[in-house]
Computed example of a mutant assay.
Amino acid sequence: MPTVDEIARDAEDVVTSPSDETVRELAETMRDENVGSVVVIEDGEPVGIVTDRDITVRGVAKENDPDNTTAGDVMTGDLVVVNAHDEITELIETLDAAGVRRMPVVDGDEIAGIVTLDDIAVLLAVELDGIAEEMTSLSNVIRSGSPPY
């Protein structure tokens, strides 16, 4: 089974912001970058994550002013991360335990990427396709070596 860094998006693909960025700026960044989350960085380290759902639920639904509400106000601050060298099974267990769909990937204290449930779904689809091909090959071998009745 591959490790997290083999399926995660690279650090260059992680959209980040400082904690004082406004909700409006975050929403515009998500729109412009076509992403559903922004990792909040302070002193070079990830300290939180803001998702499009956070903006909706913690920002808009609470009728906060998007020009005066910040990333720090709406972010999930107890950031759960996964190590770049962890196995995929550890990633899945961590995602499940945390109840999240996106998770920053770290190597030491630095952001190494981000991984989502979509990335895992793609990996599983590829793995299942490989298994299906192997089963077809095995089935052909069994048929060719078996008597007709």
Rank of each mutant, 00 (worst) to 15 (best):
A84H: 04
V39D: 08
G59A: 00
D78Q: 14
E45S: 11
P66V: 00
N140Q: 11
T94M: 01
G108A: 06
V14A: 10
L123R: 14
T136Y: 08
A112G: 01
I120P: 03
M30H: 00
D10P: 13
S137H: 08
A98F: 10
E63P: 06
E110R: 15
E93T: 08
R143M: 12
S144W: 04
D20R: 08
D54P: 13
N140M: 09
E134Y: 06
I55N: 02
I142M: 13
S17V: 10
T69C: 09
E110P: 12
V100I: 15
R143D: 15
N64S: 12
V60F: 03
D109R: 12
G48I: 02
I41S: 00
A112C: 06
T22R: 01
G99A: 06
I55D: 03
R102P: 15
A8M: 15
S17G: 13
L123C: 02
L117K: 10
N140F: 03
D32V: 02
T56I: 15
V81M: 08
T22V: 04
D13Y: 10
D54Y: 01
V39A: 05
V60K: 01
A97W: 06
P147E: 03
E63V: 00
V105Q: 08
I111W: 02
D32Q: 08
N68W: 09
V80F: 00
E21K: 14
P148E: 15
T136I: 13
D129F: 06
L79C: 08
V106T: 14
D43E: 15
I41W: 07
E42H: 03
A8D: 07
Y149G: 15
E127T: 11
D86R: 10
E133W: 02
E21F: 11
V15W: 12
G36Y: 13
E42T: 10
V105N: 02
V115H: 06
V47T: 10
V40E: 09
E33D: 12
E21H: 12
D5A: 11
I49F: 05
D65T: 07
I88N: 09
V100D: 02
A132D: 14
G44Y: 02
R101T: 08
T89D: 15
P148G: 12
L91Y: 06
R53W: 09
V100F: 01
V40A: 01
V126F: 09
E25M: 10
N64F: 05
E6K: 12
V39M: 06
I7S: 06
T29N: 05
A8L: 12
V82T: 12
S144T: 13
V122A: 13
G77E: 06
E63R: 12
V74W: 01
L128A: 07
E28F: 07
D32P: 00
E6N: 07
G145L: 11
L123D: 07
D67M: 01
S37H: 02
K62V: 10
R31K: 15
E12N: 13
D10I: 02
V57E: 11
D54N: 11
V82L: 05
A8W: 01
M75Y: 03
E93V: 02
P2W: 03
A84K: 01
P2T: 00
G113K: 03
P46I: 05
T116E: 06
E45G: 00
L26W: 11
A84D: 10
M30E: 09
V4R: 09
I142P: 02
